[in-house]
C-alpha cells in the first residue's frame, strides 16, 4: 500500500512533492543500510534455494529417482545424525541471540562465552554435515549414482557454504570488536548475524524435510504442484 501511495505522487506539483518529502527522509543509518542489504541478500538466497527446489521436485518424478528414506536400507530412514546436526545449528542460533543481549549489557565474559559457543556449534554443524557425506559414501550412496544423492550433496553443500560464509563474517565482527571494544557496534552487527543464522536454520529445516522425504511424499507434492 505504501508503495502504491508513493507511486501515486505527482512530483511536478510542488505541494505534493514537499508533503511526501516530510515523511520520506531519514538520515543515513549504517545499521539500517546493512539491514536493507541483508534483506535483499536473503531474498537472493531464497531465490537460489527456490530454484534448486523446483529442479529437485521435477527430478523426483523421473524413473531413475530413488528417495533416500522410506525403506530400512535407505540412509535417511534413520536420520538421527541429521537431527543431531540440526540441534547444533539451533543451539548456534540461540547462543548468537544470547551474545547480542549480553553485548547490549556490555558484559564482556558473557559475550565471549556466547560467541565461542556460537562458533563452536556452527562448526560442529558443518563438521557433522561433512560426516554425513562420508557415511553416504561409505554406504555406496555416491554423488553420481542417483539424482537423489546428487541433490543431497549439492543442496547440503550449498547450504553449508552459506553457513561457512556466515562464520567468516562473524569472525570478522569479533576481530573488529577486539580492536574497538565498541559494544554498540557489536550489538548492531550481531543482530544482523542472528537474522542470518535464523534464516539459514529455517532453510536447513526445509532442506531436511525435502531431502529426507520418502517416495510417497514426493508423489503427493508432485500431485499438488501439478508435475
Amino acid at each position: 500500500m505504501k508503495l502504491i501511495n508513493t507511486l501515486r505522487v505527482k512530483p511536478w506539483l510542488p505541494q505534493e512533492g514537499s508533503q511526501q518529502e516530510k515523511g520520506d527522509f531519514h538520515q543515513l543509518n549504517d545499521n539500517q543500510a546493512a539491514k536493507t542489504a541483508l534483506n535483499f541478500f536473503l531474498t537472493v538466497i531464497t531465490v537460489i534455494f527456490f530454484l534448486f527446489t523446483i529442479t529437485f521436485l521435477q527430478r523426483t518424478q523421473s524413473f531413475d529417482f530413488q528417495a533416500l528414506s522410506g525403506e530400512p536400507w535407505l540412509p535417511f530412514t534413520d536420520a538421527s545424525m541429521l537431527w543431531q546436526n540440526t540441534g547444533y545449528l539451533l543451539l548456534a542460533s540461540i547462543t548468537i541471540i544470547i551474545a547480542r543481549r549480553y553485548a547490549e549489557l556490555q558484559h564482556f565474559y558473557a559475550v565471549v562465552f556466547a560467541l565461542t559457543a556460537t562458533t563452536l556449534f556452527t562448526s560442529l554443524f558443518i563438521i557433522g554435515q561433512f560426516l554425513v557425506w562420508q557415511q553416504l559414501n561409505h554406504a555406496g550412496f555416491y554423488i553420481n549414482t542417483n539424482p537423489a544423492n546428487s541433490f543431497y550433496f549439492l543442496l547440503s553443500g550449498i547450504h553449508a557454504l552459506h553457513v561457512l560464509g556466515g562464520v567468516i563474517v562473524l569472525v570478522s565482527c569479533i576481530g573488529i570488536f577486539a580492536t574497538t571494544f565498541s559494544y554498540q557496534q557489536l550489538s548492531g552487527r550481531l543482530k544482523l548475524c542472528a537474522r542470518y543464522w535464523h534464516y539459514l536454520f529455517f532453510v536447513w529445516l526445509f532442506l531436511f524435510f525435502l531431502l529426507t522425504s520418502d517416495a510417497n511424499t514426493f508423489k503427493t507434492i508432485a500431485l499438488i504442484c501439478g508435475f
Binding site: 508513493t6 512533492g17 518529502e21 520520506d24 527522509f25 543515513l28 543500510a33
Partner: peptide
C-alpha cells in the same frame, strides 16, 4: 537508492 538519498530526494523525485 533506498537508504542514502539526500533530504528532499523522494522516490518520485
Amino acid at each position: 537508492i533506498l537508504q542514502a538519498r539526500t533530504k528532499g530526494m523522494t522516490l518520485m523525485r
